[in-house]
């Protein structure tokens, strides 16, 4: 199915409590990578898919960016980090 994928992440400067909790759990579990402290942070964002029943156009991608920046994310706390499509 053709789709546009909008990826939203909390801003780098902000604490991401969900990511921090996951990292703490990873460390508790003694995952091999985390044992060696290779994983220094976990950050959790959102992947939002917009589905279409036709081929995706450049206009759709431009619309998706507008929707992504005006509604799917809040520029004060989040960034749209990537917009991609799959046909």
């Amino acid at each position: 199915m053709p789709k546009i994928i909008v990826e939203v992440m909390p801003k780098e400067v902000l604490l991401d409590p969900a990511g921090k909790s996951v990292m703490n759990a990873l460390h508790r579990k003694g995952h091999s990578a985390s044992k060696k402290s290779d994983i220094t942070a976990v950050r959790i964002g959102k992947r939002i898919e917009l589905h279409f029943d036709r081929e995706i156009t450049d206009k759709d991608l431009a619309d998706a960016r507008e929707i992504g920046e005006s509604f799917l994310s809040n520029g004060v706390i989040e960034d749209v980090v990537k917009i991609s499509s799959e046909n």
Binding site: L14, L15, P17, S21, N74, V76, I77
Partner: peptide, 16 residues
């Protein structure tokens, strides 16, 4: 805030 009638944003409490 989300309606832009007031500025800024509200995020999870610092102490979670």
């Amino acid at each position: 805030v989300e309606s832009h009638l007031l500025p800024g944003g509200l995020i999870r409490n610092e102490h979670q």
